[in-house]
């Protein structure tokens, strides 16, 4: 009885860790540098980044589910071509749906919708995760990874848009009921047009990567420091003990 709840709890935990790992620890863009093309090309505004992310959520979750469903039917030789066909099918469907229901998004993402097919993230998850795990796990993995991808795109899009225009527009590309913009800072500082341009994509991702590196490194340093202190403490304690023992034995003999 006790054992089974513990098992359940453990299983719940794996689902959760599996879901959240894509956000920070295994973030596709900032950790694995997967799917860099869309991360650079369609993040000149928060909304296009979000739109691209949502399309990837759709494609990655569904392709992970389908791949995991048929993993036992497909012989090894034709794994890659089958996955390509499955992914390309979902991408084509997504492309048509976007064109029908969010035409401005379709126009602004342009060629990068069909290019989701060759987004390494999707192929990578299909071969390395979905082809080895259960349907539910694969679906959670796909959703989590894609949402992590989306968050990263939104972060980049947000930085670029606010630096270039001083405002964040909404309702322009996505079919939202309202349309407008947030912040509306009109500082000269927030008018660096270079950030919506091609160069801005590289610069912003580079800066964010450095920031995350710095955070990671400082955490690492802290951890090492703690460990060193702990070791020193233990050493001190051992030395103390040794000294005491020596004193005791010396006293005893004396």
């Amino acid at each position: 009885m006790v054992q089974s709840t513990a098992k359940k709890k453990k299983a719940g935990n794996t689902y959760l860790t599996n879901f959240v790992k894509g956000f920070i620890r295994e973030n596709p863009i900032f950790v694995f540098l997967l799917g860099m093309c869309p991360a650079l090309a369609v993040t000149d505004s928060l909304e296009t980044g979000l739109g691209m992310g949502l399309l990837v959520v759709f494609v990655l979750t569904l392709s992970n589910i389908v791949v995991s469903l048929i993993k036992n039917l497909i012989p090894d030789e034709i794994r890659i071509p089958s996955y390509i066909v499955i992914i390309a099918t979902f991408v084509t469907i997504v492309e048509m749906l976007t064109e029908a229901f969010a035409p401005p998004l379709y126009e602004s993402l342009g060629i990068f919708i069909p290019l989701i097919v060759v987004n390494c993230l999707i192929m990578g998850r299909a071969t390395s995760f979905a082809s080895k795990n259960t349907v539910l796990m694969s679906a959670i993995d796909g959703l989590g990874m894609a949402l992590g991808f989306t968050v990263a795109l939104m972060l980049i899009g947000f930085s670029r848009e606010i630096l270039a225009t001083g405002a964040i527009g909404y309702g322009i590309y996505l079919p939202l009921p309202v349309e407008g913009s947030l912040f509306n800072l009109s500082y000269a500082l927030f008018n660096m047009e270079v950030f919506v341009g091609p160069a801005g994509g590289f610069l912003v991702i580079g800066i964010w990567l450095a920031v995350f590196n710095a955070i990671g490194q400082s955490k690492q340093r802290k951890k090492e420091e703690d460990r060193r202190r702990w070791i020193e403490k233990k050493k001190r304690e051992a030395a103390e003990r040794k000294r005491k023992k020596a004193m005791e034995s010396a006293g005893g003999s004396a």
Binding site: P81, S82, A88, L97, P103
Partner: peptide
């Protein structure tokens, strides 16, 4: 033959789903 059949089935299913979505979105587009 089995491999060919599996590939064919995958292709046919994907083709069918694309055609279905297309016929649904064509007019809207």
């Amino acid at each position: 033959l089995r491999i060919a059949l599996i590939l064919f089935v995958i292709g046919a299913l994907s083709g069918l789903s694309i055609v279905a979505v297309n016929s649904f979105t064509e007019d809207i587009i």
